[in-house]
Design a protein around this nucleic acid. Sequence first.
RNA 1: GCCGGAGUGGCGAAACCGGUUUACGCGCGGCACUCAAAAUGCCGUGUCCGAAAGGACAUGCGGGUUCGAAUCCCGCCUCCGGCACCA
Length: 807
Amino acid sequence: MAYDHQSIEAKWQQIWEDEKTFEAFEDESRPKFYNVAMYPYPSGDLHVGHLRNYTYIDLVTRYKMMQGYNVLSPMGWDSFGLPAENRAIETGVHPSESVSSQIDAMKVHFRQLGAGFDWQRELASHWPSYYQWDQWLFIQLFDRGLAYKKEAPVNWCPQDQTVLANEQVVEGACERCGTIVEKKNLAQWFFKITDFADRLLNDLDQLDEWPDRVRTMQRNWIGRSTGAQFSLAVDDSTDSFEVFTTRPDTIFGMTFAVLAPEHPLVDRLISGTDQEADARRYMTAAGRASEIERLSEGAKSGVFTGRHVINPVNGARVPIYIADYVLMGYGTGAIMAVPGQDQRDWEFATRYGIDIIRTVQPPAGYDGEAFTGDGVTINSDFLNGLSRGEAIDSMIKWFEAEGLGTATVNYRLRDWLISRQRYWGAPIPIVSCPACGLVAVPDDELPVLLPDVPDYAPKGQSPLAALEDWVATTCPSCGGGARRETDTMDTFVDSAWYFFRYTDPHNAGQIFDPEKARYWMPIDQYIGGVEHAVLHLLYARFITKFLFDVGLSSVEEPFARLFTQGMITLNGAKMSKSKGNVIPPDRYYREFGADAMRLFELFVGPPTDDAVWNDNGVAGTARFLDRVWKMGTESNDYIDRAEDDRDRALIADTHRAISKVTDDLDRFHFNTTVPVLMTLANTMTDYLADGPREETFKAAYAAMVFMLSPMAPHIAHELWERTGHDTMLATEPWPVADARLLERSTVTMVIQVNGKLRDRVDVDADIDAGDAERLALESDKISQWIDGQAVKRIIVREPNLVNIVVD
RNA sequence: GCCGGAGUGGCGAAACCGGUUUACGCGCGGCACUCAAAAUGCCGUGUCCGAAAGGACAUGCGGGUUCGAAUCCCGCCUCCGGCACCA
């Protein structure tokens, strides 16, 4: 009977739902396994690239379940955010309506794929029962000074009409829409992630089950550098300013100093100097230029202030410049410039005719510009002759003794800007009172519900600001008139802790029960796209550390093991609606079934790598499933007879397949598991062609069905049932290979002459070295190749190889 | 510029510890079944020479280590990803 994938897949999807096969409960008697796919934005249409990810997560769920783990694999929706809101602006449909229908469409996809999720724990960030706890979390941070409002130059996307976090600016452009961002001075809400910089950096070392690439990206993003911060006094003035340097050892080479155009001291310094007009003109130009323009300009530009600073180590009087290659946002916004040892300073000094003094001896014959390598310190008085490290230490001691500075650590990481001037997000639960200042909304008034608005269009401030009745409120502290915060939270706040809520999703009185979180956390396997390497994955680590600090989380790191899957591409391009190269899975479901598609998603290539979609591939895996089906349902003519060599060989091959599939699943080498099963099926076909056998074949076939269960669950469950079992295959124990059967009694021994393959012979696996050598020399082919030449050496690696070395 | 990763048939890829290169699938060619086609099954399929037996050459390029290298080392080339005036 032909395999009817349509009705059989629907049948098992219904059974898994009815029997609640994937609902999980805390159970201290079994090891837990918390398995999470990054919760998706509900975009409705999934394409074959998305399904690779969900095939992997479901494979892990089913595999770990069969291995006896108490597996939790929940699913939820990252449902706040711009796409729903932009759709609302176009169509007038409220985002909550469009999001709900998208969620329904996605659930149909997951069901069709046969994905085993615990739907009883479903959550969505736009549900008030969820974002209430976003708001609660915000207040916890606020109460501890870790959420604060500050006016600062921030990234503004003119297209989306909202500010962006640093992490959301990619090469000077909005990560979402690609528009060049502008700098604006605005009062915005920040989370003080910088307080956690050292922990976020150091704990990366523990995450040895994370891809190195992601850890490196986070390290670079945090960007810790050590050095010294010290004070430079302005000549003829009581003013001074702080500078940060990683190279205090080069201070004798300082021939100028530079302030960022936005530095607060600039105005006072230039006032009344001959250079004032020039300087002001430069600052206006620099302020107008976008970051991209500043970067692309190439040659460093700047302007002399007319003022000087005194080098504290030798009293040298050096000019102060303003230049936009110094950034206000890093360090102190001011530097000592040492062109001899810094390439940027070198370029600037060359352009403006400033002196260059080398303080590190370059190697003989060095003809480069600034020398940034290691060498002996020169031209530096009491530092002369010291190595870089010694000179740095000496200088820091000197600064400390003089009271001018100290050793300092600087980070590239900035505080996380979380307020957004958009509608579709969680309202920030703060009230601004003329008398009391910024006051948190009390817990018993949460959630601050997101009100309906007549107009979603962004106008530079949140659409909520137009709702005067909503904005006007009373102060929770003094009862006087006050105004609500109208900005909403970045959706990355929602996603920074949702995996805690999964552990206790219906708790109405608490963000989650710490005991339930303790049972499930940390996530044993987290799967998602590498595009979140420094966004979601960093924020979630930060919030987890905060929850740890306040006693809610038992772990400091949320994701014990991280897997980042590659993309599916088509004609060399990422699938996207805008490119019009999206392949929907529907046709494959219809023609070949979800199981065949799942197998091809596994088979298509190494899981971490991008893979090219091949339209014929699913037909190939469907053919394989068809063969397996026929073998199980059409070969009923078993005969009874004693086991022979052929039977023993089949059983041994089966155990080798179990061993290999188990190893490969453990190592996430999913692409190599499918060929193992295909090869086993080919072996079984050959076996059947030679005449059916009873018990032996049944055992091999059962192993095939078990191994298919996590990969192609529908057909596997159906075959399990049809071969006379009334248990649920999903919860049957995973087969274990018998180590004694894995070893072969005979192997093919390769005979080489001078490393080139010349003959092969079958030998007993326990052949000794002497016999192997003798057998090799007895070979006719080999004696032809030796042909009288002197045998210099014979390398024997019994039982696999003999290599005869001749002159 | 700096930091990662990769380069193996017509294509996706295997080869896990240095030991039979190219498993498995796609594609392609042939055959069987069929009135025919589809589906299915079987056989073949790295390149070159050769009728065959067989041989030579092949893992981006050039060297090296080794009895033996896709794998280790050195130097290049190309592609992909990340960071990029971070002082």
